[in-house]
Nucleic acid binder design. Structure first.
Lengths: 197, 197
DNA sequence: CAAATAGGAAACGCAAGCGTTTCTTGTATG
DNA sequence: CATACAAGAAACGCTTGCGTTTCCTATTTG
């Protein structure tokens, strides 16, 4: 046990940041957003409240800075070569997110937004705006390939698939299967967006 | 001020029950579900905690018994004579509910269900099951009239319209307009369910 | 009318959480 | 090496909320 090999007892920088983020997610999963208190996060992350308050001036800021980036990295943005296979990949990405531990942030954010305008702005202005843009891009590529009609109502078309998945995830609790995804794409999305012949 | 006309100072039965229900909804609207504490409900309803505990053994039971019936009476179940006008009425009912003060219970329930299995069972087994049944009934009537194809995939068809509305209400915050409702019915639902050929 | 019920006020002891302060000391930097 | 920074432990005083008890008395019931 020489001094050179004594293990570090305190964490700094990214190591500590990751421990805090991980603690927040664990608490959301276990107890919902109400379980995310400064006391609980500090305890779970093996740190102290002054450490948290040095970074965030409030619980709301901590939640916002932790939950929103998790939602941001969930979904592939990918050009697969066809509108159909783009949509299959995107909807599968959502389904995988919902099935993952991080999916717990979905209902947490939805429940919190009505009373946290900054969280709502971050989530809708960040994550959702980005997803809308990516979906519009997907439709644009489809139009360029001649797979999607030029007068497709983009506003509705870009949300139609994920709306069904969110509905099952948040509201009805019904299963989200690969078969459902293919049905949505082949029986709803493709007919709805296809050029009219 | 004769004794016969002295105003009542205590409430009983339905009058008191309604005051409690109203207090819960007010608190959800103002503070979200986290604001619904036994202290706050008692104070808001102008009653006392023993009165609440005489009725419910826990905050969770009070929430469940208050929020779920509110969701239950939101939506018309109506036979208007055609599948199209049925769907217009139903989706307008959802839109009106979301725009009403009681709409606040939507995100409240969604946020709470992952950690309250009894609430989830009440909401999904009660409200949602009832809505699914009513939607299946609507499709059946459409089939009988020849407006809806006999092989319509009921599982997806019965949730498609409201999924889009819930998505806007809970996730994106985009407006829910009469034009949107008509677009959903005329451009998505009717083509998707219509007989082929 | 008398008796029973339960509404409402007030209080209780306890726990959890808040935001902050003080202190020690591990770790990074120059 | 010395210095600066910040991590982590511990404690603080305060607030809110919990579930419960006691008491008084309004209201209903028989």
């Amino acid at each position: 046990m020489t001094p050179e090999t004594a293990p570090a007892t305190r964490r700094r920088g990214e190591v500590l940041d990751e421990a805090i983020r991980s603690a927040v997610l664990d608490l959301v999963i276990d107890h919902g957003v109400a379980g995310v208190t400064m006391e609980a996060v500090a305890s779970r992350a093996g740190t102290s409240k002054p450490v948290l308050y040095r970074r965030w001036d409030s619980r709301a800021a901590l939640l916002r800075d932790t939950l929103v980036p998790l939602a941001m990295k969930a979904i592939p943005s990918t050009d697969t070569g066809s509108y159909r296979s783009d949509m299959l990949a995107i909807l599968q990405g959502w389904a995988d997110f919902f099935a993952s531990p991080a999916g717990a942030i979905g209902p947490a954010i939805v429940g919190a937004m009505p009373h946290d305008p900054e969280l709502a702005a971050a989530f809708r202005g960040g994550v959702i705006a980005w997803r809308k843009q990516a979906m519009a891009e997907t439709l644009r590529r489809g139009i360029a390939r001649g797979e999607v009609r030029e007068d497709v109502p983009v506003d509705v078309a870009r949300e139609l698939g994920q709306a069904l998945l969110w509905h099952r995830f948040l509201i009805t609790g019904d299963p989200i299967t690969r078969e459902l995804i293919e049905e949505i794409v082949d029986d709803i999305l493709v007919p709805f967006t296809a050029p009219r012949g």
